[in-house]
Design a protein around this nucleic acid. Structure first.
Length: 277
DNA sequence: ACAACCTCCTGGGGGC
DNA sequence: TGCCCCCAGGAGGTTG
């Protein structure tokens, strides 16, 4: 599931394969995947002829700069893929946008489960878009400090896990890396936000940064069908310490605990009851 | 204001 | 073998 490291991997791929190319024929197929009031024909008209500039990211959102100051935003949801393929590569009913590029290849947006979406900001003010207006500080941004994390958690009674998943606070963490960060920090996913000590918040901040940086270096985690731009699975899956490991032994040296799975806000949480308190 | 649910969607897997 | 049900979860919406 594309969280920050997977989206960053896609961003790097697109920066190589898409930046500098012109979009010369665009087909959009589903109005319900377009935010900001767009429909397919208008989006096709607006995109056609634009040249792709820099590719950025905030949280799990891709920010694709276009000529004339427009910006295309893309969220991959659960199963979304945005990649540059050969023009002969087959497409299916889950392919929702195809843009032929000036170099003979094509940009393809495919998303079977359709939790993803696209939004064009013709005015070049993506910060006010439907997509980004509720998205907080990127988890890898310099401005995301332990102090900022402490401010976000202060006074809240919700479990820490819920706060980490809330994109309005810190953006980019999903279910996998929330579990992994809490394990590394040795903090119970059920601990109320406001009850963490300063030291625990510092540990949590450090754990978030480290697990995300390691996952970026490994080109993400492949659970079901995410692949990197090169079409290969991410390598971080083998380094997960709790996610998906229910019933297995804790990997922390000297810990005899067994990983448990609980459900929090309808989502699986994996943790070690022996080392997370 | 905040927290706890519900909803959208499809493919894959388990059980019978 | 085939069918049905459940499960995965990002994020916005609704309810309390």
């Amino acid at each position: 599931m594309p969280e920050l490291p997977e989206v960053e991997t896609v961003r790097r791929h697109l920066a190589c394969a898409l930046s500098g190319r012109r979009l010369h024929r665009v087909r959009a197929r589903r109005n319900d995947l377009l935010k900001g009031g767009w429909h397919c024909r208008a989006l096709e008209r607006e995109l056609t002829g634009r040249t792709v500039g820099e590719i950025g990211r905030r949280g799990k959102n891709l920010i694709i700069g276009l000529s004339n100051g427009a910006v295309l935003l893309a969220h991959l949801g659960m199963t979304g893929r945005l990649c540059v393929t050969d023009a002969e590569a087959p497409t299916d009913q889950h392919t929702h946008l195809i843009a032929d590029l000036s170099d003979g290849r094509r940009l393809v947006f495919r998303d079977p489960r359709r939790f993803g979406h696209l939004e064009l900001c013709a005015d070049g003010r993506p910060g006010e878009s439907e997509t980004l207006r509720n998205v907080g500080l990127d988890a890898m941004a310099d401005a995301f400090t332990a102090r900022r994390l402490a401010e976000m958690l202060a006074g809240r009674t919700a479990p820490v896990k819920a706060a980490l998943l809330d994109q309005r606070c810190v953006a980019g963490i999903g279910n996998i890396y929330a579990c992994e960060a809490m394990f590394r920090a040795g903090i119970s996913p059920q601990a109320p936000c406001g009850e963490l000590s300063e030291e625990q918040v510092r540990r949590l901040h450090r754990a978030i940064r480290r697990v995300l940086a390691e996952a970026i270096a490994a080109e993400g985690t492949t659970i079901a069908d995410y692949v990197t731009g090169a079409g290969v699975p991410g390598r971080f899956g083998e380094r997960l310490r709790v996610y998906g490991r229910e019933g297995e032994r804790c990997r922390r040296r000297g810990c005899a605990g067994v990983i448990e799975r609980i459900v929090q806000s309808n989502r699986s949480t994996f943790y070690c009851p022996a080392c997370q308190r």
